[in-house]
């Protein structure tokens, strides 16, 4: 029994699955990152993912065209982010309240809309929604072990990896990225050269919404082929946690997201063996919590050490 478990755990199948389940968390972490860099704590990622997931499904079903569905899903993601931006930046609403409010609107709104269109509150199975195709990468798919792991993923998965690289390039190589980083760290510096920090934040939020929408649509148009209520199951929040442990960089966040993907896949695998389901399902969240604690305490200790050293230096010079 145990042999079977471990051989499955380290097989190319599970590695494939890890990459697969990491996809939404990766998008979510990028969404969190870009907004945070601009100084906005965007916690509506979960809700945005939900809404985009539903919109993508509905539109693809109605138009019988998966790409239009994806496009409108992306538009909806950006729209929600701008909605958040309007309330937070222009109506001076507390970012946590705005976030909670929008997430709740998403939770209830998606079920409501689903019910209106399909008469079902559980899922959109009744709709003939389309899925985004998996991609078999030409040369790679034939490589013995690597091919099974790297090829054949959903288009979204490859997009997620490209997203990480794109966010990196955006933040560190383009003017917009420089301004976003400046505005998030010290908006006065930007204001003193005459640009409005709220405009820059809005752009960052729009990008954030875009990433969230892709993560959401992955779930309903690739991972599964329908929308189900509350189908994000906290992945948006896990993405936020992953970002907070990524030292504020895209690749750091990606690695954290990957680690959580490992736990998520682990949970999946353990379920097919007779580990108690509930404890297994708990693992990703517990891991996030522990990770958060470890990360924060390490950071705090480093900070204390730095101050102690600075103090020692000065006390020495004073003698």
């Amino acid at each position: 029994m145990n042999d079977a478990f471990f051989s499955l755990l380290f097989s190319s199948y599970s590695l494939f699955m890890i990459i697969r389940v990491t996809t939404p968390i990766l998008f979510a972490s990028m969404a969190c990152l870009i907004a945070k860099k601009a100084g906005v704590r965007n916690i509506t990622i979960e809700g945005t993912m939900l809404i985009s997931a539903l919109i993508g499904v509905i539109v693809s079903a109605k138009c019988q065209n998966v790409w239009i569905g994806v496009l409108l899903g992306m538009v909806s993601g950006v729209a929600i982010a701008l909605f958040l931006g309007y309330f937070h930046l222009f109506l001076d609403t507390d970012i946590w309240m705005s976030g909670i409010g929008i997430n709740r609107i998403a939770e209830g709104g998606t079920i409501f809309l689903m019910f209106v269109l399909t008469g079902d509150k559980g899922s959109t199975a009744a709709l003939a929604s389309l899925s985004v195709p998996d991609v078999d990468i030409p040369v790679i798919k034939d490589i013995p072990l690597l091919g099974d792991i790297l090829s054949g993923h959903s288009l979204f998965t490859y997009l997620a990896i490209i997203c990480v690289i794109a966010i990196y390039i955006l933040l560190y190589k383009t003017p917009l990225g420089l301004r976003i980083r400046a505005v998030g760290e010290y908006s006065m510096a930007v204001e003193s050269v005459g640009k409005k920090s709220s405009h820059i934040k809005l752009v960052a939020l729009a990008i954030s919404g875009l990433c969230s929408s892709l993560g959401g649509m992955f779930m309903s148009m690739s991972y599964a082929s329908r929308f189900a209520k509350n189908m994000m199951a906290g992945r948006g929040f896990i993405g936020i946690a992953a970002e907070s442990m990524g030292s504020g960089t895209p690749f750091g966040a990606a690695i954290s997201a990957f680690i959580f993907g490992v736990f998520d896949a682990l949970a999946n695998i353990m379920q097919s063996f007779s580990f108690p389901t509930e404890l297994v399902l708990m693992i990703p969240y517990l891991a996030t919590l522990v990770g958060l604690v470890v990360y924060s305490s390490v950071r705090k200790l480093k900070e204390k050490k730095r101050i102690r050293n600075a103090n020692k230096k000065i006390a020495k010079e004073a003698k």
Binding site: L178, R181, A182, E185, Y186, M188, A189, S192
Partner: peptide, 10 residues
């Protein structure tokens, strides 16, 4: 200014 308008990590 007395408080510099500079972004520390840049």
């Amino acid at each position: 200014h007395q408080h510099f308008m500079l972004v520390p990590s840049l």
